[in-house]
Design a protein around this nucleic acid. Structure first.
Length: 191
DNA sequence: TGCCCGATTAACT
DNA sequence: GTTAATCGGGCAA
């Protein structure tokens, strides 16, 4: 039986939490899968929403770790983040892709596609498949409807530049499960 | 108040 | 490869 992730799991640097999340299991209302891709956002990072200080939107990032920060992207999609580090450091990990494990029929209906590969490979897709919206903003990650389980066994982790941003785009703070078919984009081949 | 832009996706050519 | 969809934050006026 996998170990449940406690709130304390997130009370560390995003650069420790992010790779540790790869292979963990994320469920929302019983629907979800294994985390195969994340990105770290540190408050000193120009690409982070918290970089310019607290606002209505990013208020959760400035709160305690172990909570969900959900924001609207491009006016259309929702993106899910996990708040990390001691309270007030305003750093978070973006969940970019899952390997679907639980509730596949529900996810197919919500996404309007049947291909397993396309259900959760992308931050907007993850939220649509799991029905995560701003209503989940600020939810604790160790309480329903969230359920998080630690990775069992070892995982081969790859690292690379982040995707879809223009500021500090070269920081290699994207983490993925090596060889997974469910990544939103392939990582640059290991040199 | 108004304008520009973004941690995206899918449907085009 | 290109582009539309669509909303809230940040910045200028």
């Amino acid at each position: 039986m996998p170990r449940r992730l406690s709130r304390a799991f997130f009370k560390r640097s995003v650069h420790e939490v992010a790779p540790d999340l790869i292979g963990a299991t994320l469920l929302f209302g019983g629907v979800g899968g294994r985390v195969v891709e994340v990105e770290a956002y540190h408050h000193t990072d120009p690409a982070a929403h918290s970089f310019r200080g607290p606002t209505n939107r990013n208020a959760v990032m400035f709160g305690p770790p172990g909570h969900a920060y959900v924001y609207r992207s491009y006016g259309i999609h929702w993106c899910l983040n996990f708040v990390c580090e001691p309270k007030g450091s305003a750093s978070a990990v973006l969940i970019r892709a899952l390997e679907p494990c639980a509730g596949l029929p529900v996810m197919r209906r919500r996404r309007g596609v049947t291909a397993e590969r396309l259900l959760c490979s992308g931050p907007g897709r993850v939220c649509e498949a799991l029905a995560i919206t701003c209503a989940a903003n600020g939810f604790a990650l160790d309480e329903p409807p969230f359920e998080l389980f630690a990775r069992t066994g070892a995982a081969e982790i790859v690292r690379g530049p982040r995707i879809g941003i223009t500021k500090a785009a070269d920081r290699p703070w994207r983490y993925g499960l090596k060889g997974s078919r469910f990544l939103s984009k392939p990582f640059p081949s290991a040199a």
